[in-house]
C-alpha cells in the first residue's frame, strides 16, 4: 500500500486520493499539517487543514491564499477519493496536526513537525498507531536532547536579575516560538509587559483570539533605550540587524533547539542561548517511532541518516525521504539571514 504515497518535486503525493501533503509549490489539492511558511504555501487550488492553520495562513498571505479552503476538526474522519483522512494534534504550534491516511486498513501517518514537550499554547501531541510513519528529523542526532523549558526560562529571568539595566532582546520565530516563550514566562511568574517587534504582533493577536492568554503585551514601536530591564521579543534575524541598535547594548538571547550546540549559538550571535524547541528531540523521535508501532519509517527533513540508522538497528524498515524545500526548524524567516 506504500506505493500510494510518492515523493515528487512538489512534495509528498498521495496518488489514490490525488492530493499533496505540505507541497512546496502550488498544486491543485493540498493537505497542510501546520502554518509554518515552509509547509504552508500560498496559491493552492484547495486546502484542507485545521481551522487554526487556515487562520494562520490567512494572516500571513491574506484571505485569498487558496482557491477554496476546508477546515477539519481534530479526529474528524473524511474520505478523499476513498482515502480515509483525519488530522491529529502534533503539539508543534497552534493548529499543528499529523495527518492520518487510511488505505482500507493500511494506516500511514505523516507527522509534519511535532514535539512532545509541554507547550501551553497548543494541543498536546497525540500518539496515532500506524503501519507507516513519516517522521520529521530536524533534531535527528543524539546530541539533541532538549532540557525542560522552565530551566531555560529561568536563565532568562536570572539574567534580568543580574543585568537589570539592559534590555533583554530575545530572538524567537513569529509563529509558535514567540507565543510559547511568553506563555512559559507567565508560568514562571513574570508579569511585566512583554514587548513585541511588529512582525510578531499579528500572530500573537491570533493566538489570543483563539483563547491563549498572554497577559500584557506591548508593541516596541519607536521605543529603544527606555526598555532597559525589559524583555523584548523579535524575529531571530533582527537580533543582529540595524533595528536592534535602538536598545544600546542589549543582552541578546535566542530561543532555538540549535542553541544546544555551542558553535551554532556563537554563529548566531547569541549571548544567552535558550534551548527551547518546537521539534521533538532525539529521545522523543526514537520513542515516537517505537510507540506508533509502525514497521515502516520514512524519515524526512533534517538529519535523516542517524535516525534511519537507529531504526534499522532496531529491525525497522527505514528509509530517508529527501524532501526539498523544508528548512532546518525555521519558519521561512531564516531565508537570507545568516
Amino acid at each position: 500500500m506504500q506505493q500510494n504515497l510518492i515523493l515528487t518535486d512538489a512534495g509528498l503525493y498521495c496518488s489514490a486520493g490525488d492530493f499533496f501533503i505540505d507541497p512546496v509549490r502550488p498544486v491543485e489539492r493540498a493537505l497542510i499539517t501546520h502554518g509554518h511558511a515552509d509547509h504552508a504555501r500560498a496559491g493552492h487550488g484547495s486546502v484542507l487543514a485545521s481551522s487554526e492553520t487556515l487562520k494562520i495562513m490567512a494572516v500571513r498571505y491574506g484571505a485569498g491564499f487558496a482557491g477554496t479552503t476546508q477546515a477539519i476538526a481534530p479526529g474528524e474522519r473524511l474520505s478523499v477519493a476513498g482515502v480515509g483522512v483525519s488530522f491529529h494534534p502534533a503539539g508543534h504550534v497552534l493548529g499543528s496536526c499529523q495527518i492520518r491516511l487510511d488505505f482500507g486498513g493500511f494506516v500511514a501517518v505523516v507527522s509534519g513537525d511535532y514535539k512532545r514537550q509541554p507547550d501551553p499554547t497548543c494541543a498536546p501531541f497525540e500518539l496515532v498507531p500506524c503501519d507507516l510513519f513519516v517522521t520529521e528529523a530536524t533534531f535527528g542526532l543524539p546530541v539533541f536532547r532538549h532540557p525542560p523549558a522552565t530551566g531555560e526560562i529561568g536563565k532568562l529571568t536570572a539574567s534580568l536579575g543580574l543585568f537589570g539595566d539592559k534590555t533583554h532582546l530575545v530572538g524567537a520565530y513569529a509563529l509558535g516560538k514567540a507565543q510559547r516563550l511568553i506563555a512559559h514566562l507567565r508560568e514562571s511568574g513574570y508579569n511585566r509587559p512583554v514587548y513585541l517587534h511588529g512582525a510578531l504582533e499579528p500572530l500573537c493577536a491570533l493566538y489570543e483570539a483563539e483563547g491563549v492568554a498572554f497577559g500584557p503585551l506591548e508593541p516596541v514601536g519607536g521605543r529603544g533605550k527606555e526598555l532597559a530591564g525589559e524583555i523584548v521579543l523579535c524575529p531571530p534575524g533582527q537580533l543582529t540587524d540595524r533595528w536592534a541598535r535602538r536598545f544600546g547594548d542589549p543582552v541578546t538571547a535566542l530561543a532555538s533547539g540549535w542553541m544546544r550546540v555551542r558553535a551554532r549559538a556563537r554563529q548566531r550571535g547569541a549571548e544567552l542561548p535558550l534551548i527551547i524547541s518546537d521539534h521533538a528531540d532525539w529521545d522523543d523521535l526514537c520513542r515516537t517511532v517505537v510507540e506508533t508501532g509502525a514497521e515502516d519509517i520514512w524519515v524526512t527533513h533534517g538529519a535523516e541518516d542517524a535516525l534511519v540508522h537507529w531504526c534499522r538497528s532496531r529491525g525497522l524498515n527505514a528509509r530517508p525521504l529527501n524532501l526539498a524545500g523544508y528548512e532546518d526548524g525555521g519558519d521561512g524567516e531564516t531565508v537570507g539571514i545568516v
Binding site: 543524539p142 546530541v143 536532547r145 550546540v261 558553535a263
Partner: peptide, 27 residues
Amino acid sequence: RTDPELFALSYDFVGDLSETIALMWPA
C-alpha cells in the same frame, strides 16, 4: 556507550570532541 556510527555523525556535526561526548553521554 554509544553506537559508533551515531557518534561519528554527531561528532561530524558538533565538531568538538568534549562537547560531542557531553551531549551524547547517555542519561
